[in-house]
Amino acid sequence: MEGFDFSVIGDNLPFLWKGMQMTLLLTALAMSGGIIIGTLLALARLSSFKPLSMASAAYVNFFRSLPLILVIFWFYFLVPLVVGRPVGGFYSVLVAFTLFEAAYYSEIIRAGISSVRSGQAAAAKALGMTYTQTMRYIVLPQAFRAMIPILLTQAIILFQDTSLVYVVGLHDFLVSAEIVANRDQRLVEMYSFVAIVYLVLCFTASIGVRSLQRKVQK
């Protein structure tokens, strides 16, 4: 067996960086979209209008019962059927990730909203604020402040989960590394490198989350 040659990493850095950009882009977009839709789902779930809260609960339970990879496959084949033309791997996984994450985010956000004392909403209403104003200016800012650490933890999970895009042939960080590994026959070096990068990024992020948590709890 030949010795290890880690120069393969340096030589292919620009290519790997492109893959990482795809991973980060997917994470950021799915996270933002997931939080926006998740907030709406959480508000619907907390609504006193029964059909709305039931529809939201059904959505959340449905997506939380499915494996993410199934959802990805599903949208890869389904979205083109709905739109009537091929949309490519990127948009279909983006939709899949966003809708899937929204189900998880909505549960986090619902807990966050419920943690805000009911007197806060009463005080906002007493000042003449409408429901939307009460949520936007008073309840949600407090809820999100308390939720930031958990939302970021969920983002770290999402960051790892984006590696599933290999099933639709998107070149994210892992797939790019795999391409290099197979082409240059440097499997051990490349896969070790991938593991270290994920480890360092996720570990640093979770330390950040923990210190943030301490700050928020103060």
Partner: peptide
């Protein structure tokens, strides 16, 4: 409601 002021037992100032 905007025309009637209300003061609560537990103040309910907005902490943020």
């Amino acid at each position: 409601r905007a025309r009637i002021g209300m003061v609560f037992q537990s103040f309910e100032l907005f902490p943020h």
